[in-house]
Nucleic acid binder design. Sequence first.
DNA 1: CTGTTAGCGCATTCAA
DNA 2: TTGAATGCGCTAACAG
Lengths: 345, 345
Amino acid sequence: MRATINDIARQAGVSKTTVSFAFNNPSKISQETYARIMSIAQELGYVPDPVARTLAMKQTGSIGLLLPQAIQEVFLNPYIGEILRGIGFVCDHEGLSLSVLSPLKGVLTQTIRNAAVDGIMTLGIGPGMSVLELFHQRGLPFVTIDGGNAEGIVNVGIDEQASSERLMNAILSQGHRDIAIFMLKNVTLSENGDHFSLTNDNRLSGFNAALQRHGLSMGAHTGIQVYHTEVSMRSGRETAREVLARPRRPTAIICLADIQAVGVYEECKVLGLSIPGDISVFGFDDIPLSPFLSPPLATVHQPGFRKGETATRLLVDLINKKTPTSVTLETELILRESLGPAPGL
Amino acid sequence: MRATINDIARQAGVSKTTVSFAFNNPSKISQETYARIMSIAQELGYVPDPVARTLAMKQTGSIGLLLPQAIQEVFLNPYIGEILRGIGFVCDHEGLSLSVLSPLKGVLTQTIRNAAVDGIMTLGIGPGMSVLELFHQRGLPFVTIDGGNAEGIVNVGIDEQASSERLMNAILSQGHRDIAIFMLKNVTLSENGDHFSLTNDNRLSGFNAALQRHGLSMGAHTGIQVYHTEVSMRSGRETAREVLARPRRPTAIICLADIQAVGVYEECKVLGLSIPGDISVFGFDDIPLSPFLSPPLATVHQPGFRKGETATRLLVDLINKKTPTSVTLETELILRESLGPAPGL
DNA sequence: CTGTTAGCGCATTCAA
DNA sequence: TTGAATGCGCTAACAG
């Protein structure tokens, strides 16, 4: 049975308040009482209970991060690590701790109910998802990352559509007309277990915009096709295997996550295909290792660290009763050697 | 002002107990009261306060992870991501949430005091460090990862010494006699801001064991020298720049973290040095991308995921009053193309 | 500088 | 099946 503030107070012959001051505001009591209290506390191994303190102060000193998938899936993607670093940077700065919340199968609601946090951040949770209502219900400040802009919610993201359009333009301008696009599956969660993704939609329409301007379109009868893949090396590889076996083999593969491209590289090596000689590969995210792949991966640079950093700052503002607004960060097209002209050109 | 259990009770014309049951044990009350309570709760947007609940139940449902450095440093290393995935795997399974605690400059003590968790895991915190006493004082169950074995503390790690010895043997058997070793700096923290690392010591003695058997030793007058570097790509690159400019250039570089090797690769490319033609590179960890570097990186495979997984299971056992014991996991020497014979052999 | 007195919001034993 | 009472451990007005 751990010692409580009462035990200390009794032993020291003072009141609870005095003990409390000793720990939180020593300047309000005399040196000697302070010393006596601390020595007794030491002796009894007393440490103030953080939960009780939190209850009394109505402040947990921690913020939550709600992931779109199980943690062991999500952190397969190094890009998430970048976001996490940004979040952590601000947390450290503000003296906050970070609580990682996974969306467990049916108990997501419970998870959110029970989260002892001052505010919460979400990854890829869009407007209209019932999770957000839960936050409102609890009166929990929240900001979304890559959740899409909407009235009344603070979001940090990029211009998905413009970025994708630029990406596709780069590909098309190299003469590619047979293109496989690896879209992101399971990147976000909705209450009923279904998955949908605003990010996907936006990127798709960016692609279409570029295609249209070239008089092209996606579809089974064209050379431009979409595949729904998971955000992992393995999935990238498996899909590449499937795609590269098609009679009309694409001359370019677009991976909407760099990490998938690693799997594509691997499969190409096995098949003896040269990048970009036989096939060009384009990524998205620009994870720290993309420049070091062989060949270096062309991609869209996304400011992952700053995304996390910005979102956390906004959340802190929100918690402090300020009223921040959504932020859109810049992306940059990074042309590296994995993009080359279409074979035969 | 959020609604409390009292508001609901009053509105519904029942007692607090009944409302509590409605949320936690509906089978103990009648259908109709349940329905009435829930509907009123819905209307008033009532959600039980997690902190108050925690206080009453004496269980937070979350465990803490105490990092050795600021989060933005630590997650520069993909290997940590692997450990995190393992931890998350078990957390999900057990319905626990994960609280990431950073060792802030002076307030580490505060951080630990205020952490509302049922148990805690540490990375690279060894026996004898005062942090551990704090855990005892709070009566907080804890397990260490890579903390070294000691009486009375539960640890999950690898045989650092044997692994390093095997590593060095592999290098020596390729004829290398001029070797640069990039040790890990700042990998662990102690209370007074100093840093020291049991891991470093153990690996060093493993290296020395192998060297001795070959009649060699480390030192300024020999070809085998140790550099203290940070666990990052950048640090690996900078140290490589320094090392490769030495008059007696090493023919092999050992990086005690794969991620550093990426920086070494980069510098070699700039200098026009071929791996392993001019210089061999050996890593440690076997991060997911090591096989995809060019050339693939020879390294010591460490089971990061299983480390996290095992440690978390042990912690859960500890929380449940079981008495688990320390675990040592296996490593494996992975010979890939970045290791070749010393030039001239 | 120190003590008294209320909460904070919920869970739970014991009666009814 | 429900309610009253008590406790969880701490903070913070408000007095003195």
